[in-house]
Simulated assay, not measured.
Amino acid sequence: MSGTLIGLETATAAVRSGACVASAMALTPASVSDARRRVRTVAEELGMSSTLVDDLVVITSELTTNALRHGGGRLVCHGGRPVAGLPELWLYLRGSKRPELVTTVFDTGDFWASAVPAPASGRDVIGEDGRGLQIIAALAEAAGGQWGVHPSRSRLGEQRLAGTAVWVALPVSEPVRLPLTRAVGPDESIGRLVELLRSRGVGGLIARATGQEAVLSLPRLTVWFRQGTYIWQGTTGRLSADAGDVVDAAEQIIAEYERAR
């Protein structure tokens, strides 16, 4: 379930299975059209309306353009070839009662949410780069979706580097995600979360499980798994995610981990 580099022809199937599909983006203008094409294909195959697909493509253009402009600060090269630090496009599904396609663009630029907060509406974002955020916020809001910014870590390359993730979640039609074929117990559920966090370079993990619950300790953060739900205390209060949303839970936990650092 970790981020993987997957061809366009299999991306939607991977997303349906619960995986996060991650694609590295070269620091060239062509990456904008490549990202738009990938997002359009997945969104259409998931049954999103043409209006939502078009809105998501515009949002992807804004996200990708910003990442290419600001996100090459920690590029790692070997032999003149980039091996870590390229901007990344992530796609995955979350939610069962209200399924959403989460589209995220990550770059290794410094996390800037403290200087430019992500508002519920983009109308109070100012400045040249703020106009792009205004478009993202307005389209997400009109579509009944959500958007945000948080610190994160890369999924691809030879190193896991810190940076900034800007995401948009738009509703999709049901059924879009393959259901869990069986109940997942606390031990396996916490193990899946540990696997995802370790794949992103998060260390210092201590996990234990009993018959009814499991707990995972990270530096300055504790995650519980009880009755099919991950639970943790974030900077904004108590947060939770269903067992099927382990990819999204891991991303939110990484954001808390990076804030604590």
Rank of each mutant, 00 (worst) to 15 (best):
T4H: 01
E9G: 13
A13N: 14
A13R: 15
A14W: 14
G18H: 12
A19N: 12
V21A: 03
V21L: 04
A22E: 05
S23W: 14
A26L: 12
A26K: 13
A26P: 06
L27T: 06
L27K: 08
P29M: 11
A30C: 06
S31H: 05
S31N: 06
A35Y: 05
R36Y: 06
R37C: 05
V39F: 10
T41E: 12
V42D: 00
G47I: 10
M48D: 08
M48S: 11
M48K: 12
S49T: 14
L52G: 03
S61I: 00
L63I: 08
T64H: 01
R69H: 04
R69G: 00
G72I: 11
G79D: 04
R81P: 01
P82V: 07
P87E: 03
P87C: 04
L89Y: 06
L89F: 08
Y92S: 02
R94H: 08
R94D: 00
V105Y: 07
F106R: 04
F106C: 05
F106E: 01
F106L: 11
T108Y: 04
A115R: 15
A115T: 15
P117D: 03
P117S: 09
D124P: 11
G127T: 14
G127K: 15
G130L: 09
L133K: 04
I136Y: 00
L139K: 10
A140T: 09
G144M: 12
Q146R: 12
Q146Y: 13
H150E: 00
R155L: 15
G157Q: 13
R160Y: 03
L161D: 06
G163R: 12
A165Q: 00
A165C: 02
A169I: 10
E174L: 14
E174C: 12
E174K: 15
V176A: 13
R177F: 05
L180K: 10
R182I: 11
A183I: 03
V184P: 06
V184C: 01
V184S: 07
G185E: 05
S189G: 12
G191V: 10
R192W: 13
L193M: 08
L193P: 03
L193F: 10
S199V: 08
R200V: 04
V202I: 15
G203A: 00
L205W: 02
I206G: 00
I206V: 04
A209V: 13
E213T: 04
A214V: 08
L221Q: 05
T222W: 05
V223M: 06
R226M: 05
Q227K: 07
Y230T: 06
Y230K: 07
Y230P: 04
Q233M: 10
G234R: 10
T235F: 02
T236S: 07
L239K: 15
S240L: 08
A241M: 11
D242G: 13
G244Y: 01
A249M: 13
I253A: 02
